[in-house]
Design a protein around this nucleic acid. Structure first.
Lengths: 152, 152
DNA sequence: CCTAATTAAATCGTGCACGATATAATCGTG
DNA sequence: CACGATTATATCGTGCACGATTTAATTAGG
């Protein structure tokens, strides 16, 4: 048999690769979120932007990008869609016209109430205890920090 | 202060969400892989397809989709690009013309030699011990299985 | 057989995601 | 205060990713 079945730490087989586990777990999360978010007419990345704004409103595009680790080339069209839906407004900051300030509308704020049961649904779908989830989350954040450090 | 800072298990704040940790860790992995894969002229999903084929050649599109948890609508254009690059061939199976068999070319097989130091680079970039990585991988695979079960 | 149902890929439309580049405003230095 | 450098966002091009639909081949039932 080939070396792949030896399951060495650096095995080059998708089923053994942590990066693939994370890549595919991301897709799996998306599949769980999709029916829940469709009721709100949001995609998952749009939902993340809304969560960020519910926790801190009136932010610049850059501040959102820092929180979500996304570039303006990703956020700008996404924010325009949310603006078209009437969930937020985008306006140049008069004090510094380079910046665009993103603010929730009343509808955007109101939408939060309709997300109350989502965390519970996700926890249920994960099939893991809250303690396990918390530990896993901390480990992955640590991993992410190391990876970002390594990639400059 | 808002409820978010209480860090309750179902806290609706991106920095507390496991799904976001995984989503952003996926992006972080991509950033580490990018310079390594650019030398091979591969994207990360293309690399995953090649890894799958290095471990088992002469597969159908469906078999690749099952291994990588991707749909034919994702794989077909991706495989066409790899075919254009001369790394693989796509041919209808004469025994069942519904299926398309994907086979590595000599160039595709040869490319594997140029990936030898990638696993080591990734392990280094992760900043974690091989044991920790292995445990994390197993936990995330379990999580993924639960999520896929829950999403039908 | 021969048609209905099933299966396998491909196609299409929408929405991320990012690097490279462009545009415009602000800052820093002399 | 002028002008080069920096900063913030937007634009463009490429490549996933998926659901819905389409096309074509195989299988099953009568």
């Amino acid at each position: 048999m080939s070396g792949a079945s030896a399951r060495s730490p650096s095995a080059l087989d998708v089923s053994d690769m942590l990066c693939f586990a994370i890549y595919s777990a991301g897709h799996a999360f998306n599949r769980v979120y999709k029916p829940l978010l469709e009721k709100l007419d949001l995609t998952y990345p749009q939902f993340l932007v809304m969560v960020a704004l519910w926790n801190e409103d009136d932010r610049t595009v850059g501040s959102l990008g820092e929180a979500l680790l996304l570039e303006s080339s990703t956020l700008t069209p996404l924010l325009k869609r949310l603006e078209t839906m009437g969930l937020l407004t985008r306006r140049r900051d008069p004090a510094d016209e380079r910046q665009v300030r993103v603010r929730l509308t009343a509808a955007g704020k109101a939408l939060k109430a309709r997300t109350r049961d989502i965390p519970g649904c996700i926890i249920d779908a994960s099939g893991l205890s809250v303690d396990t989830l918390r530990r896993l989350q901390a480990d992955i954040v640590k991993l992410r920090e190391n990876l970002l450090k390594a990639s400059g």
